[in-house]
Structures are given as structure tokens and as C-alpha cells.
Design a protein around this nucleic acid. Structure first.
Length: 410
RNA sequence: GGGGAGAUUCCAGAGUGGCCAAAUGGGGCAGACUGUAAAUCUGUUGGCAAAGCCUUCGGAGGUUCGAAUCCUCCUCUCCCCA
């Protein structure tokens, strides 16, 4: 559909800012380019905020370029102040290493890191942790102008509230990463979120000074919803890509529930659907837009998790919100008869299976008429759930309109 | 190095001895209306086998019948001067 990845990136809305478009486009059109994106292992799973970067790597791979996923095991020891309002909590080395390992395998689900595979995973701890301070200052540090760094947009916010020296160095290390990857792999392009522009450009300058080579930058927009909020925050916290931390069912529902105004933009960014097809969805209005949302949720769940779970959760959701009730794919908890005992108050059951955060919350919800048991609104907050309630060993709980939970008994 | 301000519940931010599980706003959740959307209105928003009890106002002690509020020490943050 596109000859040049640059055109596809542009069409899909990945490009916020880039170094000379014409030059970069030509380069991507004529040779296999090594490009990298960094991920800092600040948690043990990536979340939807990282999705744009993952898709970018995926597209690079699809076009036969050479994507490098850089895991920032070294830089995370420092913490990136870009766009942040305060000093990040210092993490221990063990935490960072454990996170790095998990994130690497997570990205490995989407990008092929196998031996002789199309993509490469590296960890900057490998070259950053062993650096000697004086040597680094003399070789690398002298290429940086403090005046220039202070003028950078990414530090602006922090200059007002306070910027710790350790964080001030982050940019230098990221620039050094680029240099290192340029030397090791001939890396010519660094991509990243728009907040990374300053850091990336610092790397470009460094490579120009040290190697005399021209390299490139491309930043993606910060993806927000139409309300202007950062993506991926829910009451349960971030929308993690790890199915253990965020169930595929909830993941699917998350995308079903995006604003009307966001659907098309997200289809472009987060799926690889053909532009013609996206154009068709673009024609939809009003309630019909749900079709587009379903497609978005399905494609993404299939990509991030797998096709089987995507189908399961799609069927479950379709059934739940249509007629009848399919039970597969929805979150469920298996309870032993012993746990149920003589019966559990409904409030306790809800908190036990995690449908509500506490039994107080369940109680509150009952008072407000928001809790359903076997499709009926619960009025009695002291209702005792006993074995007799379970029809063919299971019972359906629902909080509000959208959150379902199946309880099975064994 | 000197001086000053501050740390409150998810966030912002009131409260400066009992009326405080703590104003108000944001966010979240629920209800109504809808299309599993948005907007709007209403309610709710520490926990618990709940008209009561328990834990919470940076940390540790203390004063008091009673402390988020007063005292001592500690930790951290910010501002001004050098």
C-alpha cells in the first residue's frame, strides 16, 4: 500500500517532528535503515502509553528495516526529567534488571529478536554502567554546552521547580546511547515520543561532532484522548500490556470505550488495517461507530495478546451486551465450596473476587442501585450468597453497566 | 554557609486543641439520559460481619481527659541571601 515507510508513518499519524523530511524519506526509501527506540524499564510491563513506539518498531520490521529496541537498564539508574515535574523515585539495580528482562521478552512478542532475526534488542546498561567518570567527561562531556542544555524545552519546567544534577545528565547519556548504537550497528535514526526530541537531537549533535556523520530523528506525538488526557489511565491504574496485570477482557473493553472522536485516529496508529478500510470506517457516524470500535478493540487485542483471546473476549462482550450471556473471556473466579461455607455476604463476595475494591465499595454500590446479581439489581446489602444461588455451578455478578464477573464454584 | 516556608485522604488544596474520616475543586465510581460514546444533571468517594468500631493528616517520641492541630528530635522538599 505504501512504497516507503515514511509515507505510511505519516499517513498513520506517527510523525510529530522530524529532521529534514525529504532527506529522511529518501534514505528510508533507498536502503535498509537501522533505527532505534528506547524503553526505560521503570515498571515490569509496558502499557498503552508505549504502544505507539511498539507499533513504530513493528512497522520498521515490516518494511524490512532493522529496528533496535533499546532497554534503558543504564539510563533508568538516572531517571529522565523530560516533561516530568519532579524527581523520579530512585530504583534499585535489582529492580531495574528484573524489569529490563521482562520488558525485553514483552517486546519480543511483537518484534522478532531471534538470532539473525530482523530486529535487535540491546540494553544500555552494557555500556553505561562501566563508564569511567573522568574519561567520559573528557571524551563526551566536553561536547555539551550547558547553556544550550539549559535553554532546552525539556528542562524548562524543571528549571522552575528544581532539577537535580543526576537528572541533568540523562540527556548526555541518551545522546551517548545514540552514538554507541551508531558505532556498533550503524544506527541512523532514533525515534521516540515528542518529549524525547531534545534528547534525540543532543545525540545527533554528538554524532556529528565525534564521527562527522549525519543521523536522523523522528518523534511521535504524545497520544492523548480527545479530552487531552494521556492515554491508558483507568481506575485500576495503567492499562498494562501484560495479561497478568491487565486482563485481555478489560483490555478489549478499554478500546471499545474510547471516545467517538478518537476511533479513527487510533485505528490508524494502533492497527495495520489498510487505508481503504479505515476510510470506510471513517464514513460511519453515531451508533454505527461502535463497529469501528469493535474492530479497533479486536485487532489490538489480537496483536497485543493473541487471536484466540481476542475472539474469546469479543464473543463474551458481544453476548453480554447483546442478548444472552456468554461466559467465556470475562473475568472469572473459581471458589471452593469451603470458601463459600455457609454463605458469603454479597458485599464480601464482590471484594473477594475483585469486582469491587472493598466490601464498603460494594455496599455503596448496592445503595446506589449499581450492583447486579444474576442480572437482577441487588437491593439488600446484606444478601447472603449460598450454594443454592449457583445454577450449574456459576453465578454472574455485575457492577454498573460494564463490569462483569463470573464466579464458579467447585 | 545563613535565613525562611512547607510535607494533609487518588491529585490539587482548606483545616492550626474537641463540632474532623477531615471544607472545596479535580479525578474515579454509581444512577438518570444514551449507542458499552460524548455532554449534562444527581448521588457517592479510608476500612470493617457497620446507628458502632478500627486505621489515616512525612517519621519517632512527648504534653493533654482529648492532637492533623501544641512541644522535641529526625527525614525530605521548596524559596531567598551568600
Amino acid at each position: 500500500m505504501f512504497e516507503n515507510i515514511f509515507d505510511e508513518l505519516k499517513y498513520r499519524g506517527f510523525i510529530e517532528q522530524s529532521t529534514d523530511e525529504t532527506v529522511l524519506r529518501n534514505l528510508l526509501g533507498k536502503e535498509k535503515v537501522t533505527a532505534y527506540i528506547g524503553f526505560d524499564p521503570t515498571a515490569d510491563s509496558l502499557h498503552v502509553g508505549n504502544l505507539v513506539q511498539i507499533m513504530a518498531l513493528y512497522l520498521l520490521q515490516r518494511y524490512g528495516h532493522h529496528p533496535i529496541a533499546l532497554i534503558g537498564g543504564g539510563t533508568t539508574m538516572i531517571g529522565d526529567p523530560s516533561g516530568k515535574t519532579e524527581l523520579r523515585q530512585m530504583m534499585t539495580r535489582e529492580e531495574i534488571e528484573a524489569n529490563a528482562a521482562r520488558i525485553k521478552s514483552q517486546i519480543g512478542k511483537y518484534i522478532d529478536f531471534s538470532e539473525n532475526g530482523p530486529a535487535t534488542a540491546v540494553n544500555n546498561a552494557d555500556w553505561l554502567l562501566g563508564l569511567s567518570y573522568i574519561g567520559f567527561l573528557r571524551d563526551i562531556g566536553r561536547n555539551f554546552s550547558v547553556n544550550r542544555m539549559l535553554a532546552a524545552e525539556s528542562y524548562k519546567m524543571r528549571l522552575e521547580t528544581g532539577l537535580n544534577f543526576i537528572e541533568f545528565n540523562y540527556q548526555i547519556l541518551q545522546a551517548y546511547d545514540y552514538l554507541e548504537l551508531h558505532r556498533r550497528y550503524g544506527c541512523l535514526l532514533q525515534m521516540g515520543g515528542s518529549d524525547q526530541w531534545g534528547n534525540i537531537v543532543a545525540g545527533i549533535d554528538l554524532i556529528r561532532r565525534m564521527e562527522g556523520n549525519e543521523v536522523y530523528a523522528l518523534t511521535t506525538p504524545l497520544v492523548t484522548n480527545s479530552a487531552g488526557q494521556k492515554m491508558g489511565k483507568t481506575a485500576q491504574g495503567a492499562v498494562w500490556l501484560d495479561p497478568e496485570r491487565f486482563k485481555p477482557y478489560d483490555f478489549y473493553q478499554y478500546w471499545i470505550n474510547v471516545d467517538d472522536q478518537d476511533v479513527i485516529r487510533f485505528l490508524k496508529l494502533f492497527t495495520v488495517l489498510h487505508p481503504d478500510q479505515i476510510a470506510e470506517y471513517e464514513q460511519l457516524h453515531g451508533a454505527d461507530l461502535r463497529k469501528a470500535k469493535q474492530r479497533l478493540a479486536y485487532e489490538l487485542t489480537a496483536f497485543i495478546h493473541d487471536r484466540q483471546s481476542a475472539e474469546d473476549v469479543q464473543n463474551a462482550a458481544a453476548a453480554l451486551f447483546g442478548a444472552g450471556h456468554a461466559k467465556s473471556g470475562m473475568p472469572e473466579t473459581i471458589l471452593s465450596k469451603a470458601e463459600l461455607g455457609e454463605g458469603l455476604p454479597i458485599t464480601v463476595l464482590c471484594s473477594k473476587v475483585g469486582l469491587t475494591a472493598s466490601s464498603s465499595e460494594a455496599r455503596r454500590m448496592i445503595r446506589q442501585g449499581g450492583l447486579y446479581f444474576k442480572d437482577e439489581r441487588i437491593i439488600n446489602e446484606k444478601y447472603l450468597v449460598t450454594v443454592d444461588d449457583f445454577e450449574s455451578g456459576e453465578v454472574l455478578l455485575r457492577a454498573g453497566k460494564k463490569r462483569f464477573h463470573l464466579v464458579r464454584i467447585q
